[in-house]
């Protein structure tokens, strides 16, 4: 009996917290716009095969470098024009959304998972374990992130998978640091001592007691890393180290379009614009999340 009442009040608290979160989040107009755009992006990615008028790799040999429909010489069959080998820009951009979201999710998942484990271990055990781990994290952070990712990819071999791994490795110290700092401040709290006295084991303490209480900064960092991952993977693609042609990844598309910049503005403009809009939307959401989750910043 008492068990069920506890569960009910738990759910009620969670509902109230969610309502409060939504209140602060929706106060921020930019964040809501970001959320809407991001949702659209997800829908486009999920329904790409339905939405795209043409295949991502289908080449129309008689329609090379066609301008967008509103410009002279445009064709209503290819709304945003075609690229140098006659592929439909719009369709490639739509399929590209899949790649960007996929990259973001994979990179953040790996970095988050690795960072949390490492940070928990460092913050929980302290001593030399902590020292060694944090020194290594500091070292990784001493390198400019894109450069380190580039060199990692160069060693692992160019390609989308390796690019994602490299970016995740480079981002992971941020999560480790955040987790460690949060764990260390949480360890001081009474409820941890209480759990320990009650006989909770190390693993249970780490994952069930402490981790849920340091999620807020991790969520904010995850959002920021998501947008950076989209940006950095596009940069790697642009430098020829990420996804390889003919993948319709936006950065790779830009790299292929480079030589046409003065002849066909649309092959350059649209892929970059989609990168910018997606990254901007995620960053707007991130700002809103930070305001809503971080009580320290709420007052300003």
């Amino acid at each position: 009996m008492s068990d069920t009442t506890v569960k009910l009040s738990d759910a009620a608290i969670r509902r109230r917290m969610l309502a409060e979160f939504w209140f602060y989040f929706s106060q921020n107009r930019g964040a809501v716009v970001g959320l809407v755009v991001f949702t659209l992006l997800v829908v486009v990615a999920l329904f790409a095969p339905v939405l795209a008028p043409h295949g991502a790799a289908t080449q129309y040999r008689d329609a090379l470098l066609l301008p967008p429909v509103w410009q002279e010489g445009g064709n209503s069959q290819f709304l945003l024009g075609t690229d140098a080998v006659g592929r439909d820009m719009l369709s490639r951009l739509i399929y590209g959304a899949q790649y960007s979201l996929f990259i973001g999710i994979v990179v953040v998942s790996i970095a988050l998972f690795g960072g949390i484990i490492i940070g928990l271990v460092a913050g929980f055990f302290r001593g030399w374990v902590d020292n060694v781990i944090m020194r290594v994290m500091d070292l990784i952070l001493a390198f400019p992130s894109l450069l380190l990712a580039l060199v990692l990819v160069a060693v692992l071999g160019p390609g989308l998978t390796n690019a994602m791994i490299a970016i995740a490795i480079v981002y992971q110290p941020h999560f480790a640091r955040l987790t460690r700092a949060a764990v260390m401040s949480e360890m001081e709290r009474e409820y941890v001592t209480a759990a320990r006295v009650a006989g909770a084991g190390n693993l249970r303490l780490m994952f069930k007691t402490i981790l849920p209480n340091c999620l807020a900064p991790l969520i904010v960092q995850a959002t920021l890393s998501f947008s950076s991952a989209v940006l950095d993977s596009a940069a790697l693609g642009f430098l020829g180290m990420g996804a390889q042609p003919p993948t319709p990844e936006w950065g790779t598309m830009l790299a292929e379009a480079r030589e046409f910049i003065l002849r066909a503005w649309w092959v350059v403009t649209f892929p970059g614009l989609t990168i910018l809009v997606s990254v901007l939307a995620i960053n707007l959401m991130g700002d809103g999340l930070r305001d809503a989750l971080d009580p320290k910043l709420k007052r300003s």
């Binding site: 947008s227 596009a234 940069a235 830009l254 350059v268 403009t269 970059g272 990168i275 910018l276 990254v279």
Partner: peptide, 11 residues
């Protein structure tokens, strides 16, 4: 802050 600078340069 959200700018893909390699694209920005091309623009």
């Amino acid at each position: 802050f959200s700018m893909p600078i390699f694209w920005w340069g091309l623009l």
